[in-house]
Amino acid sequence: MFVELKHSLRRYRGQIIGWGIGLALLGLLIVPMFDSLSEQQETFEQLLEIYPPEISAFMGDLSGMTTPEGWLAIEFFSYMPLIIGIFAIQMGSGLVAKAEEEGTLDLIMAHPVSRTALFMGRLLAFILATLGVLFIAWLGIMIPMSWSTMDLRGIEVARPFLSLLAELLLFGTLALLLSMLLPSRRLASMTSGLVLVASFFITGLAELNENLETAAKFSPLNYNQTQEAFHELNLSWLAGLFAISVVFILLTWWRFERRDLRVAGEGGWRLGKWAKALKRGA
């Protein structure tokens, strides 16, 4: 398991650094911006008053933007699941299926490594890679904070990152499960991506339309904690998100243990069959 973990982390290091630095640069930009806006707080508050409620629905309570927590929640954490969710979905769907579709898993699995060890090694690498990206992003906020007027402790900033981690693991493991059930990795990524985007919109629109409140209860992003998380996390929500990820992981492991390993070229889009069926129909 540790050989696979080490190898997978080596393989993911480019993505960890790339995504981590990208998010850290965003933090480096957002934190100093807060200081600039604080200098013109009165004008800024007047501006916020004329913002339509739809923006508030998606970004969070705009009136809190004049506080460091509110600013970071709206400018960084509110849409972060959508951005870095792509990373989690790509990693999750590719954890096993990518190597299968590229044909490299065939030879790896001919070595004395059990399916469980390979799966757990790669899963652990995915979790560590996600933690790595979030840690670099956390540094990107904490470093400029030392010369900013923002006065938040490291643990306070870490809390919304913990909620974000739970969301990323949920979407990553969903993509992983789908990659075991659907015929191709691409289909698994696309389906998970649709769930992510749908969840974002349902959660936002539910703030404006009461009819969507029931649907929002089933939306994972409804339980993403941003502004409120800086001071206190809702641990039930957090545990719920982690528990769902664990269920997805167990189902994926169960499936991977029992299914045939695919080789390169298997499990792609079967456009040929559809084209033939269409021709016959015509």
Partner: peptide, 19 residues
């Protein structure tokens, strides 16, 4: 016991794909 088999066996696939 797949691991016991694979520790004593080597395999070269017909379509070799490497990273």
């Amino acid at each position: 016991n797949p691991v016991a088999v694979k520790s004593r066996v080597s395999y070269l696939p017909g379509e070799l794909h490497l990273e």
